[in-house]
């Protein structure tokens, strides 16, 4: 039972992370499309936020293991 619950939890984490990454990506692309000259800055900020989100998701995965 514990193993199955762990797997369900991992799936939930991935769903949450996926939603978050999708939001970041879509907003960044909108921003770049509106203001192509700011693409560099937007991209850097996007990667940082993505990394923070990833850290959160990985932390949860490791703790849940």
């Amino acid at each position: 039972m514990g193993g199955t619950l762990n797997l369900i939890g991992a799936g939930l984490i991935v769903i949450g992370g996926g939603i978050g990454l999708g939001q970041i990506g879509s907003k960044a692309m909108e921003g770049i499309a509106r203001q192509p000259e700011a693409a560099g800055k937007i991209q850097t900020a996007m990667i940082i936020i993505g990394a923070l989100l990833e850290g959160l998701a990985f932390g949860a995965l490791i703790l849940g293991k």
């Binding site: 990394a51 923070l52 990833e54 850290g55 959160l56 990985f58 932390g59 995965l61 490791i62």
Partner: peptide, 11 residues
């Protein structure tokens, strides 16, 4: 630091 180390390790 925990998020730093876990990110690299897990990736």
């Amino acid at each position: 630091p925990f998020s730093l180390l876990v990110r690299l390790f897990a990736n």
